[in-house]
Design a protein around this nucleic acid. Structure first.
Length: 811
RNA sequence: GCGAGAAUGGUGGAACUGGCAGACACGCUAGACUUAGGAUCUAGUGCCGCAAGGUAUGAGGGUUCGACUCCCUCUUCUCGCACCA
């Protein structure tokens, strides 16, 4: 009788649910293990990418449980966000209705996957029960000065009709992360979270088992740069302005100064003769798109303001220009230009015929006129009393000198900006602030939380927050003075929701606090987090920031939310393109499950490539996995073999078993599911070969079959459970111990040695282990192939690597 | 431009600290059992060659008894950042 997967799947799913097999025991003793996979967005149907992210994560959680850990493996839904709203507009259905219908469908699909989620811990971020605590946390941030509202130019997606965080604007074309529409700028009053307060601490990854790639991306994103900030005086003006430089060693090479066109000083210092030109330039610069302005290909232009700055050392007059290659949003919005040693300044100087004085001499000598800026190391020249010093040393001394004379100080700048969290859309958490004409920004009192998102708002995107037009929501009274006031009508970026959800999972229905502190104490940090690398500078940065901020607000006492992180790859369509509905290359797991069974789909996705690689989907190979599972079925169900049995010595068979356990365990630990499965395939191929031989009558054989099932159980939970019970066991296979290997059994008694002559393989011999060179050489000489290869030649050298290889160097 | 990573049969991919390249699969070829096969089993399958043998890990060089693995140069591809002072 062969394996009926659909029957077994139904049976065991129901059985497990009745038994509460996957409920995480809060009481259970034993070391905790918190396994977490990024929660899915409620997009509708689970696609193969969800499976690819979740299945291996589930397999590993199951494995950890078999190793004796008390495992928490929760699942939830990222349920707020724009697609719900867009779908709602398109289909004329409420976003909430759409979302909850999707949750239903996805939960059902997740169950067919056979994952060990404890559904008691489920969270849905659009539940008031959940978002109440978003608001509560927002107010904590507000209270501690970590949430503030500011008027400034922000990134605006015209299609999504909302602002975006800097992290959500991607690529050279500066498009919206969600809809690929080019993003523009708008001057708006927006809420920010002060992530920049944590810039320095976020650079510290000590103790984090995270991929280097993610650490590098975060480091670059934070963009720490060490330099000097000093102020410059303006000739015939009372004003001074600060400039930031990382190359203070080149200070004597400054030949002009540049301000960003938006710099507040521009208006004040521009001379009447230059006023017109400056005004024109500012006008064109602001009209230029961000893309044009940031394009490195664009020729640098600018205009003279007519004013001069005073060099802090030489007292020379330096013309002040404005140019849009200087950004108001970084550093001080003004720079000292050193054309000889900065390519951008060089280009600008060339164009406007400004002097290019050399102050760092390249070691290979000066080659004037310069073809391009020299940005390397060298000795200072033309730098007054500092000439002759190595530039690095000069930088240190110049900094000290400026600090001593009160001219400037060492300073660190970061590229990281504060996180813009307000959105002008409907389907999100209302920001719990009341604007009172007399009291200003007032927090909604805790006992009035949650500020409910009204279900009857008109949410068509107009570019303004839909809640602004909901009279009932908008008008309220000030909690402080009791006077009429208005509610904040922006909603939160949905990344807010996922920045702390790992804390909520441990006590999802706690109603006095965002989480039960004791449970958090017990379960956090997450031991293993898995998810896509596309979140490297968004979610994965925010979630670290939240933990640090929450720690400083006294809510928790850990500094990092996730100890270990693993990024899986992305599954592409069969055409090697990104899967999308519009391309029509989406693979539906439901069809595959129906055709091959959930176990086969699970095993196949883990077998097809290393998990971190991903790659194009190809259903052809799934047959191989089905064959493998059928073979296991026949073996474990004791169906007679069609092959002529091949005998094997019990000690060799035992070695085979324990080597397999050793390999499989190591691979499972290091996420190498593909080689792990190939080890199990090899093992089952061996078993099939020896089935019917003497060995298959022994207890050792039965042990081997059990071990095979146990090792396969995290990958193919249904079939292994079915077989486990058919083999007479009464308790679930998923409650068993992971098989252990005997280190003694891993040691071979004999070994096959390649014999090389001049590095080329001529023969192999099988000999006992731990033999010395003499004995091996004697054995090798008795081989006809070897003696033929050695004919008429002298052995010059013998390379013998113990139990590994013999190489004879001859002439 | 800067940073990170990758390149191995017809395909997906193995190869631990330098030691039998191509494990495990897919596909393909031939055969067995079959009314049938998208079931099962057997044999074969990097390339050239009837064979002995030669030759092969993007290209070229180097170190070494020995290189997919280490070093240098180059090519191609993927990803991230991109006038950050």
């Amino acid at each position: 009788m062969s394996y009926n997967f659909s029957e077994s799947e139904k049976k065991w799913r129901q059985h497990w649910e009745e038994q509460g097999l996957y409920k995480t025991s809060r009481q259970k003793e034993g070391e905790k293990y918190y396994a977490l996979t990024m929660l899915p967005y409620t997009s509708g149907d689970l696609h193969i990418g969800h499976w690819y992210a979740i299945v291996p994560s589930d397999a590993r959680a199951r494995y950890k449980r078999m190793c004796g850990y008390n495992v928490l493996f929760p699942m939830g839904f990222d349920a707020f966000g724009l697609p719900a709203e867009n779908a709602a507009i398109k289909h004329n259905i409420h976003p909430g209705k759409w979302t909850y219908a999707n949750v239903e469908r996805m939960r059902k699909q997740l169950k067919t996957m056979g994952a060990m989620f404890d559904w008691d811990t489920e969270i849905i971020t659009c539940d008031p029960e959940y978002y109440k605590w978003n608001q509560w946390l927002f107010l904590k941030f507000f209270e501690h000065g970590l949430a503030y509202k500011k008027y400034s130019p922000v990134d605006w997606c015209p299609k999504c009709n909302t602002t975006l965080a800097r992290e959500q604007v991607v690529g050279e074309d500066r498009v919206c992360d969600r809809c690929d529409t080019p993003v523009g700028k708008r001057e708006l009053n927006q809420w920010y979270l002060k992530i920049t307060d944590y810039a320095e601490e976020l650079l510290d990854f000590a103790g984090l088992d995270w991929p280097d790639r993610v650490k590098t991306m975060q480091t670059n994103w934070i963009g720490r740069s060490q330099g000097v900030e000093f102020s410059m005086a303006v000739k015939d003006h009372p004003e001074t302005f600060p400039v930031f430089t990382t190359r203070i060693d080149t200070i004597f090479g400054v030949s002009f100064v540049v301000l960003a066109p938006e710099h507040p000083l521009v208006e004040k210092i521009t001379t009447p003769e230059q006023a017109e030109a400056v005004k024109d330039y500012v006008h064109t610069a602001t009209r230029r798109t961000e893309i044009e302005r940031l394009s490195t290909a664009m020729e640098k232009d600018g205009v003279f303001t007519g004013a001069y700055a005073i060099h802090p050392f030489t007292g020379c007059e330096l013309p002040i220009y404005i140019a849009d290659y200087v950004l108001m949003s970084y550093g001080t919005g003004s720079i000292m230009a050193v054309p000889a040693h900065d390519q951008r300044d060089f280009d600008f100087a060339r164009r406007y015929n400004l002097p290019i004085p050399l102050v760092i001499a390249p070691p290979e000598g000066i080659n004037e006129p310069l073809e391009k800026a020299w940005t390397g190391q060298g000795k200072l020249v033309n730098s007054g009393s500092w000439s002759g010093l190595d530039n690095e040393e000069a930088a240190a001394r110049l900094t000290a000198d400026m600090e001593a004379r009160g001219l400037g100080q060492a300073k660190v700048n970061y590229r990281l900006r504060d996180w813009l969290v307000s959105r002008q859309r409907y389907w999100g958490t209302p920001i719990p602030i009341i604007h009172c004409p007399t009291c200003g920004q007032v927090a909604v009192p805790e006992d009035q939380l949650p500020v409910l998102l009204p279900m009857d708002a008109e949410f068509r995107p107009t570019g303004e927050s839909p809640l602004r037009f909901h009279e009932g929501f908008l008008h309220t009274t000030c909690p402080k003075c009791g006077g009429p006031a208005e509610r904040e009508t922006d909603t939160m970026d949905t990344f807010f929701d996922s920045s702390w959800y790992q804390y909520r999972y441990v006590s999802p229905h706690e109603d006095k606090y965002p989480f039960d502190p004791q449970e958090v104490e017990r379960w956090l940090p997450v031991d293993q987090y898995t998810g896509g690398v596309e979140h490297a500078t968004m979610h994965l940065l925010y979630v670290r920031f939240f933990t640090k901020a929450m720690r400083d607000m006294g809510l928790i006492n850990i500094s990092e939310p996730m100890t270990a992180l693993y990024n899986q790859g992305i599954i592409l369509g069969e055409d090697s393109e990104k899967m999308s509905k519009s391309r029509g290359n989406v693979i539906a797991p439901d069809n595959l499950v129906q055709q091959y069974g959930a176990d086969a789909v699970r095993v196949y996705m883990m077998f097809m490539a290393p998990w971190e690689l991903g790659g194009p989907w190809n259903s052809d190979g799934i047959g191989g996995v089905t064959r493998f599972l059928n073979r296991v079925w026949r073996l474990a169900a004791g169906e007679p073999s069609e092959q002529a049995p091949e005998p094997i010595a019990p000690e060799d068979f035992k070695g085979l078993l324990h080597k397999t356990i050793h390999r499989v365990t190591g691979d499972m630990e290091s996420f190498k599911f593909n080689t792990m499965i190939s080890a199990l395939m090899e093992f089952s191929n061996h078993l099939a070969k020896h089935q019917g031989a003497e060995i298959s009558e022994t207890a050792l054989w039965q042990q081997a079959i059990d071990a095979l099932l146990l090792m396969l159980a995290p990958l193919a939970p249904v079939m292994t459970e079915e077989l486990w019970h058919r083999r007479g066991h009464t308790e679930s296979i998923h409650l068993q111990q992971w098989p252990k290997f005997d280190p003694e059994a891993l040691i071979d008694k004999s070994v096959t040695i390649p014999i090389q002559v001049n590095g080329k393989l001529r023969d192999t011999i099988t000999i006992g282990t731990s033999l010395d060179q003499e004995a091996v050489l004697r054995a090798a000489m008795s081989s006809a192939k070897i003696s033929q290869a050695l004919d008429n030649k002298n052995i010059l050298k013998i390379i013998w690597i113990q139990d590994k290889l013999l190489n004879l160097v001859v002439k």
